[in-house]
């Protein structure tokens, strides 16, 4: 009889726990879905062909976000061009030259860097670059690159460390020097995870607005050179959302929707890469 009670109590506890887990799941999903719902509902109404091919409107005109999409891609592209190689290199260094005296220091500063607020990085670039060459794509790209570097470094290091010792030993025993083994065996085995880390870092910087604001400022025109500013999706959201015109506020929702779709697209790409066969 006592045994049975015990059992019932356990089943009861199990139900309670399960209920709590489901409850927290719902609590997590509510904000996510309400944001998505709101952005899609309001954003979708402005989406039209014109929205994608016309640049930022002036007062009283119709317009779109073509220049902001262009600017976002150029800025992110340049940031990746700067940040990805550096992050990759330091990730490789941390994983493959772990015994090196510097690796402790590099790892420490990388961790510190990943904790610095992006606005601080923006201000740093402001004093370093903006004050000499002005608000520009290049300044914004450097700020975003600095945000990317610790993410790429960390994910690359983790990915490379997962490559089994047996594969490295097989390569060493073939009489191959380390600098040849790293790109051909180690990076190649880990490339799915490395690419995933890079994509996630891109998704991370795609929505940054604060560092862009202090390095490039808000700009309503097309790309006109790396030493000039360019329009940007995240700043579109920021500027238009608080504007007095109904049509401009709609543009903000449209920009937000496109931005979310870009980031969602990157995340889906990551899923597909991770699911694909490993070689």
């Amino acid at each position: 009889m006592r045994k049975l009670d015990h059992y019932k109590f356990r089943v009861f506890k199990d139900h309670i726990m399960r209920f709590l887990v489901y409850l927290s799941l719902v609590l997590v999903l509510i904000p996510l879905f309400s944001i998505l719902y709101e952005v899609v509902k309001r954003g979708i109404s402005v989406i039209s062909l014109d929205f994608f091919i016309k640049p930022t409107p002036t007062v009283g005109e119709e317009g779109g976000i073509a220049n902001a999409i262009q600017g976002t891609f150029i800025t992110i592209g340049l940031a990746s061009l700067i940040g990805v190689p550096i992050g990759l290199m330091s990730g490789i260094f941390l994983s493959e030259y772990n015994e090196h005296k510097l690796s402790v220091i590099v790892r420490f500063f990388n961790d510190v860097l990943s904790g610095i607020p992006s606005i601080v990085i923006g201000v740093f670039i402001y004093t370093l670059i903006v004050r000499s060459i002005g608000f520009s794509v290049i300044a914004a790209a450097f700020a975003l690159a600095i945000i990317m570097i610790p993410i790429v470094t960390r994910t690359t290091e983790e990915a490379l460390k997962l490559v089994p010792l047996s594969l490295r030993e097989a390569a060493i025993a073939l009489g191959l020097p380390r600098w040849k083994i790293i790109p051909t065996i180690v990076l190649r085995s880990a490339r799915k995870t490395v690419v995933t880390g890079i994509l996630l870092s891109i998704a991370r910087i795609a929505g940054e607005s604060a560092p862009i604001l202090v390095t490039m400022g808000y700009w309503r025109w097309w790309f006109a050179g790396l030493d000039r500013p360019v329009a940007n999706l995240a700043l579109n959201v920021f500027i238009f959302a608080t504007s007095p015109f109904e049509s401009w506020r709609a543009l903000a929702w449209g920009s937000a929707l496109v931005l979310i779709l870009i980031i969602l697209g990157i995340n889906i790409a990551v899923r597909i890469i991770m699911r694909e066969k490993s070689w």
């Binding site: 089994p164 594969l167 065996i185 085995s189 490339r191 070689w279």
Partner: peptide, 14 residues
């Protein structure tokens, strides 16, 4: 002086 290991370890991605 080549080496063959206890556990077969071909490069899986090749």
């Amino acid at each position: 002086i080549g080496m063959v290991f206890q556990k077969p370890n071909p490069f899986p991605m090749m």
